[in-house]
Design a protein around this nucleic acid. Structure first.
Length: 226
DNA sequence: CCCCAGGCGTCCA
DNA sequence: TGGACGCATGGG
């Protein structure tokens, strides 16, 4: 286990490798389904890179079936694991500059900006802000950024307004996920009980720091995970 | 029955 | 460059 030196993250997972696997499996999929897939892998003692490589993609696909898109994800996961192998340890893989590792992750099939950044932040401890559907929804609904802004544009908003700190990005993202899940839901947003209610459009513009501090002090779910 | 979930690649205008 | 679509299971 080389996760002893890894960051303390809220992202579920016992090891850096499990976090990486989870990042692929959770693409457009609820975490409960991902848990079933991870449970299958764990039960068969398959939550290590070596054990994954020893399987066929077909076997891997069957094991992760509950996470949905299982054929695609099996193939993506296998590609990633093969790639990681060439770098030796995960520690070596992540020890290079954020820019280099990110570019490399993005070059792999099935790894887009959010998955790459989740892996960088939660498995690698790199200071990159993860922009997900919750983040986009919360910030565009409040009028803080256009809904049509692209990934890099959203990310720049955070990188330019917050200290470059992995622990901070980790915590902020966790808070946004909680607000997104429990209040700023896709349909039927529960603004009346939301910690960000006073920041609805029309109010005085406030910085990101204020937004997140409010989420932190107001959310009853700030410590919940999975 | 419906809608939704912590995306990504491909295709096409 | 950007919008539609396929990928798929499981829960509410």
């Amino acid at each position: 286990m080389d996760d002893a030196l890894g960051p303390q993250h809220w992202w579920p997972g016992e090891s850096r490798f499990e976090i990486i696997v989870g990042a692929i499996l959770t693409q457009s999929t609820s975490w409960t389904n991902v848990e079933k897939a991870l449970g299958n892998l764990n039960r068969h003692d398959r939550l290590q890179a070596r054990a994954i490589r020893a399987m066929t993609v077909g076997e891997l696909a069957e094991m992760i079936r509950p996470s949905g898109y299982f054929r695609q994800k099996a193939s993506r996961l296998m590609d990633l694991v093969q790639h990681l192998q060439r770098h030796g340890s995960l520690k070596k893989f992540f020890s290079r500059s954020t820019r280099v590792v990110r570019k490399e992750l993005l070059s792999l099939n099935g790894i887009g900006p959010e998955t790459a950044d989740s892996i960088l932040l939660y498995a690698g401890g790199h200071p990159v802000f993860v922009v997900d559907a919750y983040t986009r929804r919360i910030f565009s609904r409040h009028g803080w950024i256009s809904a049509g802004a692209d990934y890099e544009e959203f990310q720049r908003l955070f990188h330019c307004n917050l200290p470059r700190d992995a622990g901070l990005y980790n915590q902020y993202h966790a808070l946004l996920v909680n607000v997104g899940k429990n209040f700023c839901r896709k349909s039927q947003a529960l603004c009346s009980h939301c910690p960000l209610e006073v920041l609805l459009p029309g109010g005085r513009p406030l910085g990101i720091r204020t937004v997140v501090q409010r989420a932190e002090s107001g959310s009853k779910f700030s410590q919940s995970s999975d």
